[in-house]
């Protein structure tokens, strides 16, 4: 009886994760490996591929200045975007998790933009941000401010992109909100009885308890920031003067505009390695700040 249970629990974890990995083998592994193979070829959309060894990688690093430019822009965007959206979404989640009258209305308001399709997002914001005839600059002009050319100025285009991408922060807010709601009210009550102030409660109780969710949001928003494509494509097309020509667009254009699938794959794999390294850094560091019920218990033993 006891032996059976041990057997059971030795295989149990593998059985739990089995379905997912079957899916990986069937649908993800093939294309993943295939794109890796393609990165060593000169692979046009039409016609026969030619093996070039490390050719694509050498060209990327030594001949293509756009590669470095796009990389730099993407990191600049992520460096602003990730912290900003994390703070904003957490702030929103804290606001909407207060038990106040009418707060559920605001919950819907903050969530609403996430369900709007990106095609209409780009159309609406494109016109709002229009320099001459847009509503934003019109309203600014009523205040006596002359608004910038949001989408066509090197200085403002990235800001405009951040404003528009920030609009759909509701997903992250929802994740935080669910985590916040998962904290039992008893813990807060205890803190209140202890005389802990709002700020102290937040930093000493709330934040550690939602730290696994925090890690999730940081990692996923980081990945999506580095791969950002659709909004750039729809809103600025990489301009003005390539100032928003982010890495996602660089990869996409190589594949679909220039029909260089091999080169696009190589550049995607370079970014893959970078994301992998950065993510593992986040994971390494999170041993220090992510509060984990399972492991902390085991350590105590």
């Amino acid at each position: 009886m006891k032996a059976k249970r041990k057997m059971n629990s030795r295989f149990a974890p593998y059985l739990f994760i089995l379905p997912y990995f079957i899916g990986v083998l069937l649908f993800t592994a093939g294309p993943l490996v295939m794109s890796f193979i393609m990165s060593f070829f000169d692979w046009p959309v039409i016609g026969d591929p030619v093996f070039t060894g490390m050719g694509n990688y050498i060209e990327l690093f030594t001949k293509d200045s756009q590669f470095y430019d796009s990389m730099a822009i993407t990191f600049k965007f992520s460096a602003i975007f990730v912290p900003l959206t994390i703070v904003l979404s957490l702030a929103l989640a804290l606001l909407i998790s207060r038990q106040l009258k009418g707060i559920s209305l605001f919950r819907v308001v903050f969530y609403l933009p996430t369900v709007v399709s990106s095609v209409s997002i780009s159309i609406i914001w494109g016109w709002i941000l229009n320099k001459e005839y847009g509503i934003l600059n019109y309203m600014l002009s009523l205040l006596g401010v002359s608004g910038p050319d949001w989408l066509n100025s090197r200085k403002w285009a990235l800001v405009a992109l951040i404003i528009v991408s920030g609009w759909t922060v509701g997903t992250m807010m929802l994740v935080f909100y669910t985590a916040l709601k998962g904290i039992s009210t008893e813990i807060y009550e205890a803190a209140r009885i202890d005389g802990s102030g709002e700020f102290r409660t937040f930093f000493q109780i709330t934040l550690p308890l939602i730290s696994p969710t925090m890690q999730f949001n940081i990692v996923t928003s980081f990945i999506s920031a580095l791969q950002n494509l659709s909004l750039v494509m729809l809103l600025t097309k990489g301009g003005p003067m390539k100032s928003t020509y982010m890495y996602g667009l660089f990869v996409y254009n190589n594949a679909f505009q220039k029909s260089r699938l091999g080169y696009a794959s190589a550049s995607a794999w370079v970014m893959f390695v970078i994301i992998l390294l950065l993510t593992s850094l986040i994971f390494k560091s999170s041993d220090r700040w992510v509060f984990n019920q399972v492991t902390s218990k085991e350590e105590r033993r």
């Binding site: 050319d149 066509n152 100025s153 301009g239 003005p240 003067m241 390539k242």
Partner: peptide, 17 residues
Amino acid sequence: NLSDKINLALEKILNSD
């Protein structure tokens, strides 16, 4: 590739920046 370069050149000419 050429159109990429011309694109950038035209932008440089026409953008007030």
